[in-house]
Design a protein around this nucleic acid. Structure first.
Lengths: 235, 235
DNA sequence: CGCGACATTGAGTTTATTCAAATACGGTGG
DNA sequence: CCACCGTATTTGAATAAACTCAATGTCGCG
């Protein structure tokens, strides 16, 4: 069983949004420098270790988060206690948007790979967005992006045989990269993403390794045979 | 195979938003009467028969739709041609939101039960929303609602055994109703919603009937044994 | 070294799929 | 009104896939 550590306010400092290296692709991309200077509320930055929980389902929060680096899983639970991972949040993604419409967090957000986040108070986002058509547009974009992602998880990662699902997950992990290299998640997490058991995930990965569809170049660093995985994923 | 008719502009007339009987729960709930009167673009109303396609994935449209009555399925296709239904749209829901952020439609929208829709030109929505914090808020709400729904399809309808998934789907169909009565979809559609085959859907429904978890009171009208279905759904 | 957590493998069972056949159902045209 | 057709549903039998439960391997770390 994967154990979860709680996010204990391990604050790194105050973000300097004006200098942020990923600002171009981030929520605030369209916001003027001058607007930032009017902020009273500082935007805090944190570094979270593997296993930390950024927020809990049902909590009434007042922050959204942008991910500067790392990977976070969004988890929901079934009445019987089993978990299902509904999405992954990665660099430049925003999570916790539901707070903006007054909902509680809809998932547990748990760190899979060490993650740097910026915590944006709802108030700040609301203030900025009411005066910034750019930010506002960007917010809608993020919402739509999350929705597109959710749909893809249904069609790609929850449909077809275990082999197909694993292949599609692997391809997703390297998508938009020059390199076909990636690291994998714990088998239990892969199962929870794909709606299969831990054992089936393990067996399938092991089989892929034997067939050299996956080659381990270093501990948990794999090169993918993209053409053959693609073929597998599609039929 | 279910065949799809195309939506052939079967226009009923121009909607009278001021008098709309479902206005209280609809996208425009918070919009002032006076704002409506400034609209040049009329809002068209249509009635669509079963099998009609409201819009196609990949089309660059300029309308969103609010559903006044009926049921629509949102369908995505896999590379191998198989279909997956990612969401159902029902009374007071809005669909086609992606158009607002400049995307093409992300799904085929196909009518499952005769449906009345209002077609809202993007321009109208954008104009109204830039001046109406209420409408704007409502838009965010709809986006979040779609997202919550997408997550629920993953956790509830794509997880667990076929029996559990069917039970959860049935319960969903009568949720928020005083009556435990509902009508069912074609087995092929149920399969596409749950990620199972048509035959498995059929077998399961047939078995539920034999166990009186479902009682057919009229052609395609069923009463559900909610307590026992709930028990089934949960473990 | 040895412990704990995770990954892999095995064997047996259950569940779902596949392919095929049989049955029901609704509507059309004679 | 009934026969017939096409479509959808149900059922059957064999096969394949995934699950369960248990055992064994592996790796990193105290």
């Amino acid at each position: 069983m994967v154990k979860n550590v709680t996010f204990k306010e391990a604050r790194d400092g105050t973000a300097d949004c004006l200098q942020c290296s990923i600002r171009e692709s981030v929520l605030f991309a369209g916001v003027e420098d001058s607007a930032f200077e009017k902020l009273h509320d500082p935007i805090d930055q944190y570094t979270l270790p593997v296993g930390a929980t950024l927020y809990h389902a049902g909590d009434m929060g007042e922050k959204l988060y942008t991910i500067r680096s790392g990977i976070i899983k969004l988890v929901q639970y079934l009445p019987d206690g089993s978990q299902r991972i509904v999405r992954l949040i990665r660099t430049t993604d925003v999570t916790g948007l539901e707070i903006l419409v007054g909902e509680t967090y809809q998932h547990d957000a748990v760190v899979l790979q060490e993650t740097e986040v910026c915590a944006l108070p709802v108030r700040v986002v609301n203030n900025l967005s009411s005066e910034n058509p750019g930010l506002h547009k960007e917010l809608l974009n993020r919402w739509q992006r999350a929705l597109t992602e959710a749909d893809a998880w249904l069609t790609e990662l929850s449909t077809g045989s275990a082999k197909q699902r694993i292949a599609r997950l692997l391809l997703r992990l390297v998508k938009n990269r020059e390199e076909s290299q990636c690291s994998l998640f714990a088998r239990e997490d892969m199962g929870a993403m794909l709606g299969i058991t831990t054992e089936t995930a393990s067996r399938t990965i092991a089989e892929f390794k034997r067939q050299s569809l996956l080659v381990e170049t270093a501990p948990n660093q794999f090169l993918l045979d993209i053409p053959n995985l693609t073929r597998l994923a599609e039929d």
